[in-house]
Nucleic acid binder design. Structure first.
Lengths: 202, 202, 202, 202
DNA sequence: GATGAATGAGTTTTCATTCAT
DNA sequence: AATGAATGAAAACTCATTCAT
């Protein structure tokens, strides 16, 4: 109560309210089919209030990406640090990635669907994020190579694409599977597949 | 010439004109930011003419997916048949997939970006396509297992997701790379990575 | 009928309809208090139709100024040519100016009220018009000086301001006088006052 | 200092602050394109504070007209009283009118541009002001006629329109002339032109 | 008195779709 | 079949005004 009444947290709370509501609406209907009025109603504020916190409709999505990307990414880094050897780091990263998206389905939908749109518009934030991910994977791979558990001739840039693409698809498949299984249950199988590949060892 | 003057092929040609134009416009601006008028102008027809060949704006995208999916997919199947052993089939499938998208950049952009939107709306066509792809990969994998070149404990559904996701991401990365390299140059490295995995053989 | 049905006159007629309606509405309520919907209703067209003929609300006013200025001004020039000596030319110009505004009250109101706004925004059209008027008056004055009926030491630029300002104010006073007298009845008195001035001849 | 701290003068000072700020903003952007928030920011007060001193946005302009009209007009009267004979009175009135507008450019712009709008709405204040001006000019003219320096057949109402209109236009021309000359430098030429007229004496 | 966050009515503008020709 | 002018519903956004603090 009293905490919620100091101006700062009030503002913060409206901002968060609107952002949450927007993600919920965008997840349900897609960005373009969602209206500012719907977001306002969901957030329990007037239409005009949206514009006190966001420049325009697009800005809501921008803030979502900035905020969520930063948040998600810093938790990825923490997760990676939590392990010592490269393989555990990779496993943790994958599991964490899936866990984050499992925990916030609306966020996951919006992220999966709208990212592509913004990539086309060469959104800088998306590129930054992609680069950070590349660095993270790179350092893990190099460590793994020193540890002798990852082959030295691995094309890192390609591996990052395969890994990201695979995780993406696993998430997307889960999203549209009517929730019959837990997304995190895919972490270990996915990890193993990436490590061992498809081929018979010989 | 004379063929083009019989009503049927004329209709057909208008239909194709509009579809081509739409893909070009959608690729450049995205589906929602494209207007029917723009498509009409690009196609060299009147706005109203669009509605003689398509139910509405959405229907254009539907037809694109139906048409392109069918076309692309049948060429995937041909490609697979062209090889005998499982690994060559897989390699061919991957190369062909990349080649098709490299050959038609507009189609690639629209496919990559707008597919996600339609998946959310549980578009039946997308699901069909996904299933067909799964069957194709399945049969290759099973053949490979019989040939002893693919490990018998491979989780096929997951592998299909990894493969699709990886190809997707490789395509997307290429699309936004300002065309510095050929997409098909990624086929062999990608194939090899999927087969061998990341891990050091031991 | 048949004339109205050829495409050109149809378009022209819609364009004119909307322009007329806009002037009527703007005259009654002022530009800023008028809505595009009101103009559309008055013109008997849908809101969207306005935008087939005008870029935006502002553009309607622009077109009005371009069109009316050109029209009014060319009739001023004709009127001036109709007389031989300078004093008759001046008298004709003044009478014609008043007559034009008397004949189209709505136009007069919009012109008188909204011109100032546009002058501030240093609208080029308004400046052109002002210059043309200056040229017209200049040539009359010079002719009058040669004829010996206008004093040679007259500051022409200032005179043009006085004349324009006086006519403006006479029109404005008439506009808000609830139409008790004819505007053209002010032409001769005004002409005489400008010629003779206020002072007692001595 | 201490005077400024009693409630009444504080209120007065806020009132003046807001009025000044409003004129500055209105002059720059026009009444309709100016927002209450902009005025508040310029005045250094909160948006809501405006409504403690003014009924609404319109009321700010009303107060400006009341206040400025009264102020300007009383200084006109003083100026007239300062001279004995009619011609000097007229000359003083004209010079003073120009001087007041020269001294406060923002006020001048707002006055020139927005007066017309309010005239249309048959604003009572504007009418009062116009009547007062008429009385002032009337009495000067009648004095001049008795003194034998103004012709007895002068149509006074028309003369007042010519004079007001001329001064208006001289001011407006100056306002948009990028300040290359002093407005008051036009006083004597204008006075002379009104007195002598355009015609050659004969 | 003073604030400024919140409101929501009201506006401009767009654009998919229709239909008379 | 083809046209493209016309439609009008719907959306984003603004801003004067209010009111709880």
């Amino acid at each position: 109560m009293s905490e919620n009444n100091n101006p700062d947290s009030r503002k913060n709370s409206k901002y968060q309210q609107i952002l949450q509501a927007a993600i919920k609406i965008f997840a349900r209907q897609g960005y373009y089919k969602s209206t500012v009025s719907q977001v306002a109603r969901e957030a329990g504020v007037a239409d005009g209030t949206i514009y006190l916190y966001f420049k325009n409709k697009d800005d809501i999505l921008d803030h979502f990406f900035s905020y969520k990307t930063r948040e998600v990414f810093s938790c990825f880094q923490q997760e990676v640090r939590r392990a010592d050897n490269a393989l555990d780091k990779l496993r943790n990263l994958i599991r964490r990635h899936l866990l984050e998206f499992e925990n916030d389905r609306d966020m996951a939908v919006v992220y999966q669907v709208e990212t592509r749109m913004r990539r086309r518009l060469s959104d800088i934030k998306i590129k930054e994020m992609s680069d950070m991910y590349f660095d993270l994977v790179s350092s893990i791979v190099r460590q793994g190579q020193q540890e002798g558990v990852i082959r030295p001739d691995l094309p890192i840039a390609l591996f990052k694409q395969v890994m990201i693409g695979a995780i993406d698809e696993v998430i997307t498949t889960w999203l549209y599977s009517s929730g019959k299984y837990r997304l995190t249950s895919m972490a270990d199988p996915l990890f193993e597949l990436l490590i061992r590949g498809v081929g018979e060892k010989n």
